[in-house]
């Protein structure tokens, strides 16, 4: 059985790497056990090497037969930049999952899927799962500028209608995803809205859907450590209660999330993150000079 072929499962090997935009990369990773259990909405935690931190990434796609997990990540700091340097054939030291709860998969009717920036990746498996169950899927994806957009084709393939926006109008409709969401809700309404992207975007979408009284699910991305409910680092306030995102989420009712608290908690280590990135870039530059000389 694929789950128990010892040597195969110990290391997570990068089978394929794709550069989606200058800062967003896709990797297909061999992780049969994770792939076998993965469901839309779940995530993995990985650690690149012995010194690495544990970082969570959404399962953007999975193939149980091939035993693969697809991750898509934006290079925002040391760990994601370092991951971005890994090539096909390289190993990732630890790769654990699938973590978190899956989304409820059933027929809701008309579902609007909103993906902002790198959030397009996590929204895709949800749209696909809901489409397969016979929902009518309207997708709205957006990014700051045309260069940062990816997976338009993939999203198109699992949606009945797809809208694309860019903040600067370099591609698709100029403006934010929220204006399209508002238009869709006004013209045809929806039974469920799923929004994944920057916290600000999820907050704005939730405020909007609240006005229209449409149930809304968002996928939160607080800082995490273990991902198994052991540390409480990922705690968020939902409906005035303390929840651990890694085990109770990451998907929550968008109307009940305390976004301002989440925004603040995400900034917890800004100084340290900057220092880690700078130290690492310096070290790399020094090494390059040494190699050249």
């Amino acid at each position: 059985m694929i789950l128990f072929e010892q040597e195969e499962i110990i290391v997570a090997k990068i089978l394929r790497k794709e550069i989606l935009t200058p800062q967003i990369k896709l990797m297909v990773v061999h992780a049969p056990r994770v792939a076998h259990k993965a469901k839309a909405g779940q995530f993995v935690i990985l650690r690149i090497n012995e010194e690495g931190e544990r970082i969570p990434l959404t399962i953007a796609d999975f193939d149980p037969r091939e035993g693969t997990i697809t991750i898509i990540f934006q290079e925002v700091g040391k760990s994601t930049m370092q991951l971005g340097e890994r090539e096909e054939g390289d190993d990732i030291q630890d790769f654990v999952g699938p973590l978190g709860k899956e989304i409820e998969e059933k027929k809701f009717g008309h579902v609007v899927c909103v993906g902002g920036g790198v959030g397009i990746a996590p929204v895709y498996p949800k749209a696909r799962a809901l489409k397969m169950l016979g929902n009518r899927v309207t997708s709205i994806i957006g990014s700051r500028t045309a260069d940062l957009l990816f997976w338009e084709d993939m999203m198109g393939s699992v949606s009945d209608v797809l809208y694309v926006t860019t903040d600067d109008g370099t591609y698709g409709e100029k403006g934010f995803v929220t204006s399209v969401v508002e238009r869709v809700l006004k013209s045809e309404g929806a039974d469920l809205v799923i929004a994944v992207g920057p916290i600000m975007m999820m907050k704005m979408v939730s405020l909007l859907t609240k006005k229209f009284n449409v149930p809304t699910m968002v996928s939160l991305n607080p800082i995490m450590v273990d991902g198994t409910g052991m540390c409480g680092c990922c705690r968020v306030t939902v409906d005035h209660q303390c929840k651990f995102t890694c085990v109770d989420g990451p998907v929550f009712d968008g109307h009940l999330v305390d976004y301002d608290e989440l925004l603040a908690r995400q900034r917890n280590y800004l100084d340290e993150e900057k220092r880690a990135t700078e130290t690492w870039l310096m070290k790399k530059a020094e090494e390059e000079v040494r190699h050249a000389g």
Binding site: E53, V225, N268, Y269, R275
Partner: peptide, 19 residues
């Protein structure tokens, strides 16, 4: 956990920060 398992006491040699 940050300090022991993730070795935050050796930041930035180890990536995990602690405040």
């Amino acid at each position: 956990t940050r300090s022991n398992l993730m070795k935050a006491f050796r930041f930035p040699q180890y990536d995990t920060p602690i405040k």
